[in-house]
Amino acid sequence: MDARGLRAPATASVGFVTGGQLANFTCLAAARHSVLAGAGWDIAEQGFHGSPPLRFVVGSHRHGSIDRAARFLGIGRAGLTIVPTDSQGRMSPEALDQALVGAEGPLIVCLQAGEVHTGAFDDFAALIPLARRHGAWIHVDGAFGLWAAASPGLSHLTAGMADADSWATDAHKTLNVPYDCGMAIVRDPADSIAAFRTGGDYLIYSGLDPWDVTPELSRRARGVPAWAALRSLGRSGIADLIDRLHANAVAMAAGLRTVESVEVINDVDYTQVMFRLGSDEATRALGAAILVDGTAAMTGAEWEGRAALRCSMSSWATTPEDIVRTVEAIRGLVAAGSPAG
């Protein structure tokens, strides 16, 4: 399993960083350097002040780490072009096409593999060619969803994703390694080198070095846990892990639909299940009761202005029996507290 297994070219640079936040930042720093260079501006030499205006295009249901990475790069909220999404958080191709009408100059478009609440994937096959026609750098935030590419049964979710310029993921999520194992993948290593390579006559270059593709010099060997997991599981093991997480999500959603007053509010395409009761108050009360009960842990969320509960299937240790126990615990809590309100 290498970068090709995640639908990225084998020649791409892969930098290991702290997590998904820094993976997005690292990829977008390379993107900023590249698109400004294409407009005749050398940010390493001239800095960002006075550079050609940079358009930064995102979906309305992007993860907060995208905005934060943009802020680190000197792009505030007022500098974002926000494209509407559908009911699951997928960017609309028609809306993107409209947003890019007349687009000139440096352009970065951020897409998403796995919306954090619904698990939805953007339609890369439709969106990437649209963005490419305008000369955009296309980045994919795939903190947990990028791994769908490794499953023959789920890889259709990532169709067209290989045509992007950079991809971010976090191995601690789907791959189940410890924290501090984000991955910033950039199609052309020259873009990483241009953004990050530093000088120093005591630094011995041996090709593509770690400090060429990430913001850090001093760092531990973050890639070892990911390598160990990939080496141990292999392609078939990774695919099996992804398929089991998805099967657990499907079973969880099916079980919740049998519980009176519970509404599953997302299409369970991947590993996320989001549900609610009839009112915000009842939904929040159920979430608190689930945590006190202790059978399972899930987080409160907000979707389209309403309270929801979010269940993310991410642990290799979760079994079908765990799903049954969780659904029955929720059924009992709903019945006992009558929180449907």
Rank of each mutant, 00 (worst) to 15 (best):
I108T: 03
D180T: 06
A103F: 00
M161C: 06
W167P: 00
Y205K: 05
D165W: 07
T198W: 03
N176K: 13
F121Q: 03
A162G: 12
E104Q: 11
L203Q: 07
D170L: 12
G153K: 07
D180R: 09
H139A: 01
A131M: 08
K173W: 12
A184S: 02
E115R: 00
D209L: 10
A194Q: 14
V186A: 01
Y205M: 05
R132W: 10
W137H: 11
P189I: 07
A126Q: 12
G145A: 01
W137P: 05
I204E: 08
P225H: 15
R222P: 01
R220C: 05
R187K: 08
A149N: 03
R133C: 09
R132I: 09
P225W: 15
A194V: 14
Y179Q: 14
V213F: 10
A190I: 00
P225L: 14
I204S: 05
V213D: 13
R197Q: 08
C110D: 00
V140I: 12
V109M: 01
L208Y: 13
F124I: 11
R187G: 02
A131L: 11
V224Q: 06
T214W: 10
A126P: 07
L175V: 10
I138V: 15
E216C: 07
S206T: 06
S206Y: 04
T214S: 05
F121S: 06
P178H: 02
G145Y: 04
A120H: 04
G207E: 15
K173T: 15
S151A: 10
P106E: 02
G182Q: 09
A125M: 11
L217R: 10
V224E: 04
D201L: 09
A125T: 12
C110P: 00
A143Y: 15
P215T: 02
L217C: 05
D141N: 12
W211A: 05
D163H: 13
S192G: 14
A131C: 07
S151R: 13
A149R: 02
L111A: 03
D165K: 00
M183P: 04
A136V: 08
L127D: 11
A149K: 03
L107M: 09
A195C: 12
D165P: 08
D188T: 03
G153W: 01
A131Q: 06
E104F: 04
G200E: 06
